[in-house]
């Protein structure tokens, strides 16, 4: 009993209740700061859950990103559901989803009552303009730290995939879904080759 408590607390401080509270509060905070689409929330989650709280490792976070990106629905909600299950089972999933949805629902409720006035406020426009540069920096910072880790193992394979996917995504309007499916296909072919190679004496 004591031992299981200990291993629980070793994974990010406090018991399960404490972790659920932390998960909910962090979901609220992260969601309230996600200006600019699904990839922003994923990078904020990585900083919080991987680097700070150590609830997930980097590989898991990337897998979750892929799953969230290729499933129907909002990426932010999908990623929250995955992290929630991992950190706190069913209650964790529900709390993470609620925490992610609550800030936009509350903010939009307020705004929809006087939206014309809000959109025309010059100060709001200036703040948002400044935030765009900050958001771009946050995303590229995460790319640099994730990218570095990729070149520790399968260097050539990873570099080719990265370069091709980047060029296709940046230069064409190809849907993300096709890129992910192509990567699964490439991974499948490589898995078969590796399996054959391992079976050979």
């Amino acid at each position: 009993m004591i031992q299981s408590n200990r291993s629980e607390s070793g994974k990010g401080g406090g018991g399960l209740e404490n972790r659920l509270a932390k998960l909910f509060l962090n979901s609220l905070l992260i969601s309230a700061c996600t200006f600019g689409g699904g990839f922003v929330i994923v990078t904020l989650m990585k900083r919080k859950y991987v680097d700070e709280l150590h609830w997930l490792d980097e590989g898991e976070m990337l897998d979750y990103t892929a799953l969230a990106q290729s499933s129907p629905g909002a990426i932010a909600v999908n990623a929250a559901v995955l992290v929630g299950w991992k950190v706190g089972g069913l209650p964790g999933m529900l709390l993470a989803a609620l925490g992610t949805v609550l800030p936009p629902v509350l903010i939009l409720t307020l705004i929809s009552y006087f939206y014309a006035a809000f959109a025309a406020m010059p100060l709001v426009a200036l703040i948002l303009k400044g935030m765009r540069a900050g958001v771009a920096a946050v995303i590229l910072d995460v790319v640099l730290s994730l990218g570095g880790k990729l070149f520790e193992g399968e260097k050539v394979f990873n570099a080719v995939l990265l370069a091709v996917a980047f060029l296709l995504s940046f230069l064409t309007n190809l849907s993300v879904i096709w890129l992910i499916l192509a990567a699964v296909l490439a991974g499948g072919v490589r898995a078969l080759i590796l399996k054959k190679r391992r079976e050979r004496p």
């Binding site: 689409g37 990839f39 994923v42 990078t43 590989g59 990337l62 897998d63 990103t65 892929a66 990106q69 771009a136 995303i139 590229l140 995460v142 790319v143 994730l146 990218g147 990729l150 193992g153 399968e154 394979f157 990873n158 570099a159 995939l161 990265l162 370069a163 091709v164 996917a165 980047f166 995504s169 940046f170 993300v176 890129l179 992910i180 192509a182 990567a183 699964v184 490439a186 991974g187 499948g188 490589r190 898995a191 590796l194 399996k195």
Partner: peptide, 18 residues
Amino acid sequence: DVLSALRPVIVALIAAAG
């Protein structure tokens, strides 16, 4: 093995979006 091919692609997608 399959998932590991997804990881560089996801990093590339995040990079392109950024």
